[in-house]
Design a binder for these strands. Sequence first.
DNA 1: CCTCTTCAAGATAGCGCTGTCTCATCCGCT
DNA 2: AGCGGATGAGACAGCGCTATCTTGAAGAGG
Lengths: 337, 337
Amino acid sequence: MRKEASRATGRPTLAEVAQLAGVSQITASRALRDVPTVDPVLASKVREASKALGYVPNPAARTLASARSQSVVVLVPALSNQLFIETLEAIHNVLRPRGYDVLIGNFHYSREEEEELIRNYLAIQPCGILLTGFDRTEVSLRLLEANKIPCVHMMELTKAEDVFSVGFSQEEAGAVVARHLLARGRRRLAYVAAQLDTRVIRRGEGFKRALAAAGVEALELAVPDPSSVGLGGELFDRLLRRHPDVDGIFFCNDDLAHGAIFEAQRQGISVPGRVAFVGFNDLPMSAHIVPRLTSIHTPREDVGKHAAHLMLTLLAGAEVRDRKIDLGFELVVRESS
Amino acid sequence: MRKEASRATGRPTLAEVAQLAGVSQITASRALRDVPTVDPVLASKVREASKALGYVPNPAARTLASARSQSVVVLVPALSNQLFIETLEAIHNVLRPRGYDVLIGNFHYSREEEEELIRNYLAIQPCGILLTGFDRTEVSLRLLEANKIPCVHMMELTKAEDVFSVGFSQEEAGAVVARHLLARGRRRLAYVAAQLDTRVIRRGEGFKRALAAAGVEALELAVPDPSSVGLGGELFDRLLRRHPDVDGIFFCNDDLAHGAIFEAQRQGISVPGRVAFVGFNDLPMSAHIVPRLTSIHTPREDVGKHAAHLMLTLLAGAEVRDRKIDLGFELVVRESS
DNA sequence: CCTCTTCAAGATAGCGCTGTCTCATCCGCT
DNA sequence: AGCGGATGAGACAGCGCTATCTTGAAGAGG
């Protein structure tokens, strides 16, 4: 009942694998972790033994011994929002097959809640953390720094050199929308935004700056509430009362634009006849709504995929070529503008 | 460097807490786990010491020693689908504050993939599993059985006695839709479905059975492809060609109905004038689309909440009153019917 | 041919916590 | 007063794995 004992669960242990392979336990351990100092002959013996027994390592034991788990934490500002789901799924698809557990933390657009999550999740000694954006508390930064955990930042890009990020330029996306609406001959342009996180704000800045460059003043209606279809209708109505002459609107998120389209339809306002709409994110519905919505297609899935691969590279201790991966975006012009 | 050593991470260990509280390590362990055999005086001393040191238990050590982790696995058939997000979020909101980690597995509507996930996730010795529905492979069932892991089933209900489930009657929901459309005077009724999982099928059966009871024959158009807005438009078009006299359609999911509304709008077909639409799930958009969509509001968030609480009860080893929690559903009648 | 280096394999010692058994204490009962 | 039985605290021994140090063998150089 000592060396070759199976686990409480009945599954075989590393000791059994080692015995079957005729090597020491530690050699078996190294072989299965692909430590390069192991003789290929022994390594393949170990792998065979492992397969024969149906060995599955115990993550808890591994974590305890190495002081580092096989878990990657992903912190996103929201789940309800369709937005991050595709990114999360892509991350899962990359990391799960490699044996990593993915833990999702939702900080509800709150820096404090994010800090709390970081604090809690550090207890499980994750081997890496995927973060959304760069806007976090000092304490959060210090915690991450102090624990020396590889971090990859998603959705935004930064000029900072020692930081890994995967995303696209929010400002530039806003600017592209501005230029598109100007090219359509629109001159009374507005930015309608909700859920004012840094990305929404940077998007709006890009938009306004591009307009200013063309000598056009930007109208703006921004509220901190969460983005939703219902809110989109409301904001459109409010904007229209305040500026009846508006002829082009950039919504910070497609769902706002969808709501606005419905509201316009109810009020008998022609889109794009009287006012052109441009959304952001290109949600699936945007290609089908009447009128089809012009939008910025964002590489949400690719952000997840690349961020996860970047994390794998960091975890492997390999050299990272590009610390900053710009995946770009695409303006998809449809009927609404 | 033995008993009172801090962890590699620098955080204090249970031994330090015990020393500060002047008790043995095991007593400290019991106090912090609320084992009832501990003197309340000692227990509060331990809690104070713990707080003073900022002690955070090491989950890996706990898992290794107890052969059971603090993780709850949740298996859902899809993430991309807005549907399960609210449920997942509710589960998170209940379990995270209690110190449980929530691991999400997406089996993409594949029984085999679910089996694979179960096999993999069992390695982390989860303390409980939340499952979607009852349709899984024999091997999956055996694995769950053999590992004696508490299971809670979501979204559907079963007559089986020894099973925990939280959901609502899919059949009854379908029947309610049928009766609603009949009450509106519609007689050429169709069920349009995609992603034919057991829930979608049961829904349709309830619908057709209720129609049959009224002597009305049900039309049907069902495809296995994933549900989407685009597909909804397509299916509506196809149905209309095949049965131009259809005057009422029950879509198995709101997004299909949304797509159909857009397609109807493009073809100049009046909804509900010529054909009434009823969706399922009552997604946020349904209250705003033109025309507003009649739908079955499903208690997705509540399912998550109740399932998580049921799991907590099971984990606490407490008595469970109701093994079957029927949360019902609500027909929300809007403009489309 | 022998020493010095190099490198792969093994022995050892925990990682931080909890299950289980043992032991002391105190109560109620005869 | 003495005894059995609760009851609560502690000792002990791992859980299954890996970091680290040590050892032994093989290869290089004089």
